[in-house]
Amino acid sequence: MNRRLFLGAALAVLAAFAIGAPAEAQQNTLEKIKQRGKLIVGVKNDYKPWGFLDPSGALKGMEIDMAEDVAKRLGVGIELVPVVASNRQEFLQQGKIDLIIATMGDNPKRREVIGMIEPNYYAGGTNVLAPKKAGLKKWADLKGKKVCAIQGAYYNKRVQELYGPDLQAFAGIPEALTALGAGNCVGFVYDNTFIESTLAAGDAKWKDYEMPLVTEDEQPWAVAVPLPELNGPWGEFMKKVSVEWHKNGTLLALEKKWGIKQSPFLAEMNKKYKG
């Protein structure tokens, strides 16, 4: 009897998954925003300097500035909703937020569920966190040296094949940073955005550290709208905004304002759209 009950429950759960995605009534988000007089944006609140809480508890950061710029262009108010990687897509699909600007990587799998706005507004890549006294200048300097890393990171193989460091890959960031701090490796290879935010946080522990190399192997980040609206008025509006951000140097200026090391991607895009 119990087993039958369990089977029944399992089937019910499966069925719920199968028919779970409700056919939601899509309305024009652009109209909706203007009617309610405010834009609702999903942002990060733990990723300095992109989206973080300042000492007074207010949301600040480069992506917050971008969100505010969109609201200003629409002539409406703004509401910021903190999101995390695991819930932002659902929030957008359910209509809880109108827009995602939350350090989100653009990839084909995600393009199946949400509308990624092109051109991309940033690209995060691979770099190294290293003590200043290690004196690293170029990627080739890593050859044969012990470099801490994270197990399973997508760039480990690429970096090893190209520059031949002796990678010491740990299970988590705290272990890798501890090993770096103890001098078990000359650097820690990771996302440049994480390294930047670690350095920007101003922790005394990292004051003698730097990000000495040129960021490589960039993966684009995108602003996202609900998928059905990607080619509707809302999606087209955001595409236009994104082009303008590149063209008039808004993104380059914001990057500078928030102390983010200049990304070759933004410089390139600026040249492309201006040209």
């Binding site: 197990q151 399973g152 990171a153 997508y154 480990n156 193989k157 890959a169």
Partner: peptide, 10 residues
Amino acid sequence: LYVAAQIWSD
């Protein structure tokens, strides 16, 4: 085990 994990994640 370490190299196997590296290989399978790549």
